[in-house]
Design a protein around this nucleic acid. Structure first.
Length: 553
DNA sequence: CTAGCCTTGATG
DNA sequence: CATCAAGGCTAG
């Protein structure tokens, strides 16, 4: 049996933190969310976090990956029997029986529902009953483990002092080097509250994250500038001081979650220092009130649209979480390397793009609407639009965070540090070759247009969904379903723009008119990356590479 | 039917 | 050759 490339498997799993698993009490879930399975911990250098993840279905001890995710032995067996014997259970109660270690036997119906809800995959039960070997989920399990390890890293650095050590550990003595993280230490808890603009007077402390490049990453003749990508957009990295990049080092940071021109407070997720993990934050089914203190006189959208949009917004990744992931992964990577084996600039760019791509795949995977699709459809849709999603993601970040003339990279809060990365566009344009300059210019033009349109978060999310649910992708099986979802999002977007931004009479149309350009840019980005890939510039084992490869094969 | 333990066998 | 997720077996 030949298995498909690794990225496809990402689509196949669901995280154990499904919004439907409400029977586990929140506290426990929060605690569990930061815990790792013992298997993973064996690999951890720091073996202090001795803990085990519990089964997302019943809370029992996890025995390994089964049918798509970490579950206990009994739920594994139960799920297998149910699928193999094509069981058709019924519930004697209200189809919402409690599911835990002691009560899981009571109602097989609810247990099976829960299995499905948390993401156990029927497809992983073999029709031919063949034993042994690995199934197509294998690579995906690996990938998940990697991600979880990342989280361990992230959480074990909750202490600011330790974090500082982590940061400086990889710091090189000679700035002006490559990647600079701007960080400011927040002084109080209040600074972590989204609604408080307490951070405006923070002083910026540069924290160089070294990536001494082996120079010529920037200077390959035909493809002169690396990493035009997404929020990893180019050039805020620099080599050995030979290229005259200057850094924009803002003395003030935008308060997190309350960027200057966002009309909505986006998400009130607690920052990384809290006990809530990214996964639990993502799965939080309690609708976060989205209406902020801003624009008090804007008329509220009708409840139906509002609810639908709220639902779509729930899956949005927190900027600080993304940042933490990116930074943590870069730190880990650099820490694992010797002094003379630092990642080059382009590789760092790719790693960052890779992390974001991961986030986007995860975002889609966790989306209720997306989950309704067949796995095959999920895969072809993602394969078709991943680069568009990346471009959209970048655009949104620019619209919301970037200053005039700057490209905003990732930002966020890690532990008590505020981190901002940005680069001046003029620097890129002066250094980049034709391809990259063109891309940067086109992208910046689009950013300007979107800024003028005052794109808000809801609209951005709708655009992501419109791009994702593209019924024109060939080999989509449930075309009608994709089409209906797209239309539904489209209607929501229309009503949202009309209700929330009544003064911009054609905002809806204007937004849709930007999508072809997004598409076009994404294709050019893919092309550029593929060229770099052919030159051997892309790090191997990246999701990015796999996506590119799948498309070109 | 449940669930703990056992056997299998592709993968790296 | 080790790993580890499949399926199998069986006492309770």
């Amino acid at each position: 049996m030949s298995y498909q490339s690794e990225w496809t498997f990402l689509v196949l799993t669901c995280r154990s933190s499904s919004p439907t698993s409400t029977s586990v009490d929140d506290q426990t879930e929060d605690m569990l969310a930061v815990e790792q399975s013992s298997q993973e911990l064996k690999a951890e250098v720091d073996g202090t976090t001795e803990s085990e993840e519990s089964c997302p279905v019943c809370g029992d001890r996890v025995s390994g990956y089964h049918y798509g995710l970490l579950t206990c032995e009994s739920c594994k067996g139960f799920f297998k029997r149910s699928v193999q014997n094509n069981k058709d259970y019924t519930c004697a109660e209200q189809q919402s029986c409690p599911m835990n270690l002691s009560q899981r036997k009571r109602c097989p119906f609810c247990r099976f529902q829960k299995c499905l809800a948390v993401g156990m995959k029927r497809e992983a039960v073999r029709a031919d009953r063949m034993r042994g070997g690995r199934n197509k989920f294998g690579p995906l399990y690996r990938r998940e483990r990697q991600m979880k390890q990342q989280k361990v890293f992230y959480h074990t650095n909750a202490d600011p002092h330790r974090m500082k050590a982590e940061m400086t550990q990889i710091q090189r003595p000679t700035p002006p080097n490559d990647l600079h993280l701007m960080s400011g230490h927040t002084s109080s808890d209040a600074a972590r509250q989204p609604g408080y603009a307490s951070g405006t007077s923070q002083s910026a402390v540069p924290m160089p994250l070294d990536c001494t490049a082996n120079s010529d990453v920037f200077t390959s003749p035909s493809l002169p500038y690396p990493g035009l990508y997404h929020h990893t957009l180019p050039g805020y990295l620099q080599d050995k001081g030979e290229l005259p990049y200057s850094y924009s080092m803002p003395a003030t940071m935008y308060p997190l979650h309350q960027p200057p021109n966002s009309s909505y407070a986006y998400r009130s997720t607690a920052p990384s220092s809290s006990t809530s993990s990214p996964s639990s934050a993502l799965s939080s089914s309690a609708p976060v009130p989205k209406t902020s203190s801003q624009s008090p006189d804007a008329c509220p959208p009708s409840t139906a649209v509002h609810n639908f949009l709220s639902q779509l917004m729930e899956g949005e990744q927190d900027e600080s979480q993304l940042c933490a992931k990116v930074v943590a992964s870069l730190q880990r990577e650099q820490a694992n390397r010797g002094k003379h084996d630092r990642l080059n600039t382009f590789s760092i760019m790719c790693k960052m793009a890779d992390q974001t791509l991961f986030g986007l795949v995860e975002w889609a995977r966790n989306s209720a609407l997306f989950k309704e699709l067949k796995v095959e459809d999920q895969m072809v849709l993602l394969q078709s639009c991943w680069s568009e999603l990346l471009v959209l993601d970048h655009l949104c970040r620019q619209v919301i965070y970037s200053k005039e003339g700057c490209i905003y990279l990732v930002s966020g809060q890690q532990n008590l540090c505020l981190i901002v990365m940005q680069i001046e566009v003029s620097n890129i344009l002066s250094q980049a070759g034709a391809t990259l300059s063109g891309l940067v210019s086109r992208t910046q033009d689009l950013v300007s247009k979107l800024k003028a349109l005052q794109l808000d978060r809801q609209e951005f999310v709708c655009l992501k969904y419109l791009v994702l649910f593209n019924p024109d992708v060939k080999s989509v099986q449930s075309r009608r379903q994709v089409e209906q979802t797209q239309e539904r999002v489209n209607r929501a977007l229309m009503e949202h723009t009309q209700q929330r931004h009544p003064r911009q009479s054609d905002k809806f149309g204007q937004l849709l008119l930007r999508l072809p350009e997004v598409r076009s840019i994404s294709l050019q980005v893919e092309e550029y990356l593929y060229q770099r890939h052919l030159l051997g510039d892309l790090p191997c084992n990246s999701l990015l590479t796999e996506m590119l490869h799948t498309k070109h094969s």
